[in-house]
Design a protein around this nucleic acid. Structure first.
Length: 272
DNA sequence: ATGGCAAGCAGGGCTTGA
């Protein structure tokens, strides 16, 4: 089973790239982020024409996530509230679902969670506080899913570089969004603290391996990137991860997304 | 230290991203 994640920065603008990539990389499920489109306008037909069903949670202009799957998924749900209810630890959380950043569904014996973690804008800003609060609720959301699903793959655009190996030039980035200590701690507590592991790091120890390059300052040409797109896998999946790779190819295409796909391969999928 | 680039919405220039 192959599960890929790709922040496409507008599914409509990037449709030809997504189709081209899926035709040469026929993964079972592609998790996309920043679709930037309402559900009614999602380009389902073009994806169905190449054999992919679309499960979508979108909004106008910003955010938006989707699961593209070759076979129907089960138990699909969107947002935090569908799993946690209207409150978490006594605090209302429904406002966090106004931004469409969470979708999940089950394929075989694996529940796949596709996330678009808030960017946070600037360390200390209101959006940064939102990001940290969102990550706090994520912890309880993932706990609830883990209680029901031994096999869990949590992937997406995390907008956090887990450690300094994941940044082209980590010096002085402590106050930089995506690298600040509080963000890294939140990721540690909300995801790794549940026993989930960064699948990519099971296969690659070295630094200098990136999934996002800024459009500005010719970052891709200089390979001045960050690794902010991840797959986290639950202990229940044991040693089933076979490989996890970054495909830099689409980042070099004409008018690309600023992110490139990352692909997780699982073996021994009993229910498929 | 700053600004650089891209997308959406709207039909100009702002907002957001990372």
């Amino acid at each position: 089973m192959k599960i890929a994640t790709w922040n496409v920065n507008s599914i409509r603008t990037r449709l030809a790239h997504v189709i081209q990539w899926l035709e040469s990389n026929p993964v079972d499920v592609l998790c996309v982020q920043e679709t930037k489109v309402i559900d009614a306008d999602f380009p389902r037909e073009a994806l169905e024409a190449i054999g992919y069903l679309a499960y979508v949670s979108g909004q106008k202009s910003y955010n938006g996530v989707a699961l593209l799957s070759r076979v129907p998924l089960e138990s699909v749900s969107m947002g935090f509230v569908s799993v946690l209810g209207e409150t978490n630890l006594g605090e209302p959380i429904a406002d966090l679902d106004e931004q469409k950043r969470v979708i999940t569904g089950v394929l075989g014996d694996v529940r796949i969670v596709n996330l678009y973690v808030p960017n946070g804008s600037e360390v200390g800003s209101e959006k940064y506080q939102y990001k940290l609060r969102w990550l706090g609720v994520l912890q309880d959301y993932l706990k609830a899913l883990l209680a029901e699903n031994a096999g869990l793959v949590v992937c997406g655009d995390f907008n956090i570089a887990p450690d300094d190996r994941d940044i082209y030039k980590p010096e002085g980035k402590e106050k930089h969004i995506m690298a600040s200590p509080a963000e890294r701690s939140a990721l540690q507590a909300s995801v790794l603290g549940l026993g989930l592991v960064d699948a990519f790091r099971q296969f690659h120890e070295e630094g200098g391996l990136f999934s996002w390059w800024d459009y500005r300052t010719a970052a891709f040409r200089r390979d001045a990137g960050w690794r902010i797109d991840h797959h986290y896998i639950s202990p229940g999946l044991g040693d089933r991860a076979v490989d996890c790779v970054i495909d830099k190819t689409p980042r070099g295409w004409e008018k690309p997304s600023d992110h490139t796909p990352v692909i997780l391969e699982l073996g021994g999928d009993a229910a498929l």
